[in-house]
Design a protein around this nucleic acid. Structure first.
Lengths: 165, 165
DNA sequence: CCTTAACTTCACAAATTTCTGAAAGAAGCG
DNA sequence: CGCTTCTTTCAGAAATTTGTGAAGTTAAGG
């Protein structure tokens, strides 16, 4: 059973989740600090935290928070807002926005594809290596298209299950 | 136009591709040496190379090759074979095997899901944070299923385009 | 405008990761 | 069985990455 609203959550339970979740993201290639910041936001009830709150909860310096959120907004995993009537900055995870960003590795895919295309050309499309690269390239192009339609299906699925937010 | 078969390929063109491709893999989270070794294999005509060949081409020590191929076989991106009648080990990329492995991040997905499930429980399924985590979890579960069907579609697509190998 | 709160940038220290050389460990071959 | 060839392991050096403190920048509010 959940706490009555207004009661502070168990900070230790939050921290355990944040660190555990962040560890998975790190393993998947993300740097530690952005992963932790993201985890903290994801586990916050409001889905919004200030720099100070993030720094305090994660026990890190303002500089570390600054670097992490800069990265996270660049990859569109959080958005930053100015708190009206204050110099405080706030960072938010939108319920859906962030995993849309996760699949928006399109830029990444594109660069893989560029590298492969260049390889096919420079090694020769009619060499065994060139053919292998071409097939790999075709795979990435396929995946790119598939991800798009998958996200469309997800949006439908999500609406059914969670309703619009 | 391609070289007549039997002619050595331009080592510089190969190297350019390998390093460029490896750089993308690194950016996507893979360590440098495994990425380079994988690139070298991918760009080889035979799709097979010995430790010595890898070390020589990449200008690295046997120890570095050893570590890289250990990692690559663990994640099923290459397979190792014993060259018959020799102590030489050979490493191979199968045309298709490796990107099957790439999408076989299922283990990774599973761990993300575990972390999220634990978070939903410990933060409370009826809290705002718990609901956010639950939706994220649902997304991952959805993706996991989708990847499976996507790979089935790819195999069909591939057969049409490249024929069986 | 000046003060002050908040965020950012930067140089550096600490921690981590990566690669090497050397030594030890397997496995074919005589 | 020992010799030889190849691979792996391991300790440590080198390089890279990460996070901090301190100074610098911006903008709200008197």
């Amino acid at each position: 059973m959940a706490e009555p609203s207004g009661t502070a959550r168990d900070p230790e339970a939050v921290s355990r989740f944040v660190e555990h979740f962040a560890a998975q993201m790190v393993e998947a290639g993300m740097s530690r600090m952005p992963a932790r910041v993201f985890g903290a936001l994801l586990a916050s009830d409001a889905g919004v935290m200030t720099s100070a709150e993030l720094g305090e909860q994660l026990k890190v310096s303002p500089a570390a928070v600054s670097g992490a959120v800069r990265y996270l907004s660049q990859v569109h995993m959080v958005s930053r807002e100015r708190e009206p009537g204050s110099r405080r900055e706030r960072y938010r995870v939108h319920g859906d926005q962030w995993y849309e960003a996760l699949t928006n590795r399109e830029a990444v895919l594109k660069r893989w594809e560029d590298a492969l295309r260049e390889g096919v050309t420079s090694l020769g499309a009619d060499t065994p290596a060139g053919r292998r690269l071409a097939e790999t390239l075709a795979f990435f192009e396929f995946v790119e298209k598939e991800i798009e339609t998958m996200m469309e299906r997800w949006r439908v699925h999500r609406e059914e299950r969670f309703g619009r937010e």
